[in-house]
Write a protein that binds this DNA or RNA. Structure first.
Lengths: 152, 152
DNA sequence: GGAAAGCGTTGGGCGACCCAACGTTGTGAG
DNA sequence: CTCACAACGTTGGGTCGCCCAACGCTTTCC
């Protein structure tokens, strides 16, 4: 007799769309993330990770690297600079560009975000075992490969 | 020699996050979708698909089914109703609820969106063969399973 | 009968994406 | 050398999705 709280499955046409699945996974991920840190930390993480791995970059390069618009990069860098995580100075060799650099505070912040992101990730993927997680990761990476350097 | 357009890979820390990958796949999917139809068609598709599969529903049920907020369902249903795709009438057995029903126009619209969604999907997954697509789909479904009926 | 809960609606905030414009600065062609 | 062109960073704006809060109405449950 009546399951108290019927199953409430989404319609088949929706479940069939990989794009919709990815969207759902993404927003569930955002929810898990929000339980550990403010959502803005996600863009902070992206920028700081890029600066840590590739060294000082201009904002335009950051945008290309991360697939973000110059506009939005501007805001993120301003936020990071205000928070003391990043130094921003004019590039003497090309005064159009800003040279953005992570400092020690920023690196500590980066590691903190990393820890929280790992927690959120574990919660998000709680339904998959280690093998499945690796497969999912590989398949997503391959799907993205086909679209590298597409817009900005 | 310099490769003319350096590779511009995102940082490893980012690539390692499944949540970030899913987000990227989702927004690339949105971009592909936008090449075939207005983006609002995505929510239209969700609502129409639910109504087609489960019959007339209240807006609250729609929200639960699709994982959307009542607030947003309200706007979507209004848009669909204005466009003539959906009938909305008070449920005589419970006058709090609206009974939302797809009509013939709505079903034609649904099929049109389906065709465009399929095109977008094909472009999105162009890097994967049929097997990989099935695997990706199954893994995403399994990951989502663990989070069913979570918020609203 | 009255409190509690559910419904649909409105208004608002936030993050991410994207477009357009501006002033500044470098580049390259004539 | 000059002048058109391109790239950079910034600002302002628009959209879409998610989420919270409040309201008035209706139903349900004690």
């Amino acid at each position: 007799m009546g399951d108290a709280h019927e199953d409430l499955q989404p319609p088949a046409r929706l479940r069939a769309l990989t794009s919709w699945q990815a969207h759902k996974v993404s927003t569930v991920g955002a929810r898990m993330t929000a339980r550990h840190m403010p959502l803005t930390a996600r863009s902070d993480f992206a920028v700081l990770a890029a600066l840590e791995e590739y060294g000082p970059l201009s904002q335009a390069d950051l945008g290309r690297r991360l697939g973000l618009d110059r506009n939005d990069v501007s805001g993120i860098v301003t936020r990071l600079h205000t928070g003391g995580h990043v130094d921003r100075e004019a590039n003497p060799e090309d005064r159009r560009r800003n040279l953005v650099t992570v400092n020690k505070t920023g690196l500590r912040y980066l590691d903190e975000i990393q820890r929280n992101a790992d927690k959120a990730q574990a919660e998000l993927l709680s339904g998959l075992d280690a093998n499945e997680r690796r497969q999912l990761h590989a398949l997503l990476a391959k799907a993205l490969e086909a679209h590298r350097g597409e817009p900005a």
